[in-house]
Amino acid sequence: MTGRGEAALYPLRLSITTKPLVFGGHAISRRLGKPGIPDWSIAETWECSDVDGEGAQATNGPLAGYSLRRLISEYPEELMGVGWSGDYFPVLTKFIDAAGTLPVHLHADDATARRVEGQRNGKTEAWHILAAAPGATALCGVVDGVDREQLRRALRAQDFDAVLRRLPVSAGQTIYVPGGTLHSFGPDTLIYEIEQTSDIQQHAMHWNMEDGSPVSDEQFDTNIDLLMQEVCLEHRPDFEPGLKIAVDDGVQRRFLCAGPYFALERWQAGTVRPVRHTFTTAQILTNVGAPVRVRTGDFDEELTSAQSLLLPAICGQVEIAGPADVLFGYLPDLARDVDTPLRTAGYSQALIASLGAGRPETP
């Protein structure tokens, strides 16, 4: 495999996008210890993004300045794996600080995004809870038995608890949220989010999430009409603890979620053995613990707290010295990357399917 560029691919540090939305706070920098972000209220940092107009660029090595879109165009198989082709990087990852409460909103599924919004794909997502205050909750999915007219009336009245499921939230849990699912979370909740590459959304609020300014009655009615075209009443996902595999002495691998669009794993290691992970597709490595040393091929560098690194498929393996607490996000071959290791560990196919809401979707 060779790209059309002059340089070979290597682990990539990417530029990030910061979002100072109205519900944000200071937890990403002060609690997670993320360096290099502005010292004001930040709601989101986009760790790996190829969203149109807000895509990341490489910041290290001979390919510094190359956009992720250009990298995937010039190095498709080196980045994503043998046989892969596509026009953009398919996975988006973020830290989200819900110091305040997010707006009640949804993202269309693929079919609806193409039909209603003229977009190439929708946005299924998953939230991995990094921290949450005691008593924290999330809204996710419509209560069983609520019909479309009841939902519309409640949304117009901003009476969300009358029609939406309110779920308890605690650190370490993960929820897979299919496109079309109404949702919100916060306050006092810090998450890592993985999702399809998209920024489409429809809101049910009388205020704008950028600055809290009011939404006019006319715009609010339009927003509710569009949302009702995209909502799925049947999705009722739940938080899951993930499925654990003991890998080595003091090394644990936990599958947090897995579906056709993305998978997310959390690896933790003590000091006896390092994390050793082999892979055949691009890995978004994100450090959610103390600084660690990352080694793959000739690359041997520190990854500080709350920083991410894009490991191209061509790297093939990575070693991370413990103590370590890291996330790996990727586009999976479900049979190879998820089902096989978990079935080998003794998990039933029903339990494995629960990592992706029963895997009802096809890309």
Rank of each mutant, 00 (worst) to 15 (best):
Y347F: 14
F23K: 05
Y261S: 13
S305H: 03
S29G: 05
T137M: 02
L327E: 04
A246L: 11
F279C: 03
L106M: 08
R13H: 12
L155Q: 06
L190S: 01
V82E: 09
W127N: 06
A282G: 01
C140M: 10
I42L: 09
T137P: 01
A345D: 01
L9S: 07
A99L: 13
F220V: 11
D325K: 01
D337E: 04
P241N: 02
G212K: 06
P20Q: 03
G346L: 13
R276Y: 11
G289Q: 03
I314W: 00
P11W: 06
M80F: 14
L102N: 01
E195K: 01
S348L: 00
F23C: 05
T17M: 14
G322F: 00
A335I: 14
V326P: 02
V163N: 08
G172E: 03
A321Y: 05
Y176N: 14
G25A: 15
G259D: 07
D298P: 02
D225A: 15
R295W: 15
E77G: 03
I175D: 04
S348G: 13
W84M: 01
E125Y: 02
Q119E: 12
E78H: 09
F328C: 09
S67W: 07
H206S: 10
R253Y: 07
V169D: 11
A126P: 02
A108S: 08
V292W: 03
Q252I: 15
F160Q: 07
A353W: 01
A335K: 13
D248N: 03
S85Q: 07
S73T: 14
L71S: 02
E44K: 07
R148H: 14
I28E: 05
Q349V: 13
T2E: 14
L130E: 14
A138W: 01
S15K: 03
D248G: 05
Y261H: 14
A321K: 00
Q283A: 08
H203T: 15
D159T: 13
G212Y: 11
L139P: 00
I200M: 08
W127P: 10
R293Q: 05
C232V: 13
R273S: 09
L233P: 05
A313D: 12
E74L: 04
T278G: 08
S85Y: 12
L79F: 08
D333E: 08
L106H: 02
T286P: 00
H277K: 12
P260G: 09
A335F: 10
I245P: 00
R156L: 14
R31L: 15
E361V: 13
P134T: 00
H206K: 15
R336F: 05
R148F: 07
I191R: 00
E74V: 04
L327R: 06
A324K: 01
S41L: 10
P103H: 06
G135F: 06
L303Q: 04
S49P: 02
R4D: 15
T45N: 00
L303S: 00
D52M: 13
A98N: 07
Q307C: 14
A132R: 02
G55Y: 10
L164G: 01
F255V: 12
R295T: 14
G61E: 05
D225L: 10
R293G: 03
H128E: 11
Q158D: 09
L63E: 04
L14I: 05
